[in-house]
Amino acid sequence: GPIILETYRAIADYSKCTKYELDLQAGDHVEIVEKNDNGWWFCQCESRRGWVPASYLEPLESPDETEEPEPNYEGELYITTNSYTAVEDDELTLEEGETIEVIHKLLDGWWVVRKGEETGHYPSMFLRAKGEKL
């Protein structure tokens, strides 16, 4: 039978920054084709297909309870594969090759990580699990 794709609603207007993304108006309905844990979801909106930031979407049925995973305060060891300089005040600035602990793998691709006493958001696409092959 047909694969039933989840339908989400855009919660704000989004203008694409790269070719393979989708422009969205707040209220647009999209079908979710693929959820990438880096926070980019591949969606279909009418006849258009492209990548959309998960942070701009909420489930059509149950808008308030998202399927966010639970935080893991013990922390999981990850290594940064790219440096990133914080833009928002709740983000961390880290160099490439730093070992940090991932506390919360948020669906929007901005995981909460801890380095010593500091915690903040960091792009999950710049992290790989310690021991994972590159």
């Binding site: 393979y20 880096n38 980019w40 990548w51 942070s55 701009y56 901005w110």
Partner: peptide, 22 residues
Amino acid sequence: SIKQPPKNPPPRPPVDVRRKRT
């Protein structure tokens, strides 16, 4: 190919949404 996600991190949640969720 189109199935390759963008190489840059996605934007943070729109500010008003973040306030609502936290």
